[in-house]
Design a protein around this nucleic acid. Structure first.
Lengths: 136, 136
DNA sequence: TTTTAAGTGCAACATTGTTGCGTGTTGGTT
DNA sequence: AACCAACACGCAACAATGTTGCACTTAAAA
């Protein structure tokens, strides 16, 4: 999957900026904050990036990666999300040392007993700890 | 448990402001954002509140309630947390309609297989959905 | 009651989130 | 190939939130 395919699959216009952003996601394969992206995109407009991420999220290319850090992060969707719904049910591993966040596809959300009357829509699992590089 | 006991149990000076903040937590029994608190505390200093919450969190009176919303929230700890460590392993239910967040003590974090070399420190479970009041 | 370590409140600044608007670009249509 | 309308971009501006420094006040220990 390349950035141009991703854009056309999601009814988005192909622009140089969007391709650059998607290429970074494809290259790093982990959740990235806006700041992470700005560091990779030499010369980029903060607002354009903000709106680009928002659009990508709405169209189902990327999803918010809740990791418990203060900073909002995004990660590429596995592939079958679209403008109607996201289907990412994996866990996010957040390294407390290097602050990087990884998607862990294997972990499923637990079966749960919500209180009576509560309607469950989606669940997220966040794991805090130290990644392989920071652990030793 | 009242606010004065909570403060002395955690080696914190008893001040009027801290008592007011704790009373709100005791009254509402759910996770509250700084803005929620400001609305209850008529006349309060934003910075003092910010530092008060930070201190409470460090001393183990309250914990960050990660709920996937943009706003950081805090909730009272169950009781056995202190300056050394937090021991809150419950789930947080975040209502997508009214934005309120509830601690769900019954749900445990799932057993998990972190990738090789990753050290797990803590896990969080977030449930998004609609609370009893907003569901019907 | 005195002392001092801690808490409070104001000012100031940094960072991030968000919107409006004029200009440039894309992709479909003529 | 040229045109056009919708969309995307980039700048300005503002809002909300996070954070620190400092002077003044207060809690609690001596």
């Amino acid at each position: 999957m390349n950035s141009i395919q991703l854009l056309s699959n999601h009814q988005l216009r192909k622009t140089q900026f969007r391709e650059r952003v998607l290429d970074i996601f494809l290259r790093y394969e982990r959740a990235l904050s806006q700041k992470d992206l700005e560091e990779q995109l030499h010369e980029s407009d903060r607002i354009t990036l903000y709106r680009t991420l928002k659009t990508f999220e709405e169209k189902g290319l990327i999803h918010k990666a809740i990791d418990g850090s203060d900073r909002l992060k995004y990660a590429l969707c596995a592939g079958h999300c679209d403008v109607h719904a996201h289907h990412d049910h994996h866990a996010h591993f957040h390294c407390v040392t290097c602050e990087r966040t990884f998607c862990i596809e294997d972990v499923q959300a637990p079966a749960l007993d919500a209180p009576p009357g509560f309607e469950v829509e989606s669940t997220h699992v966040i794991i805090n700890g130290r990644c392989a590089e920071c652990a030793h």
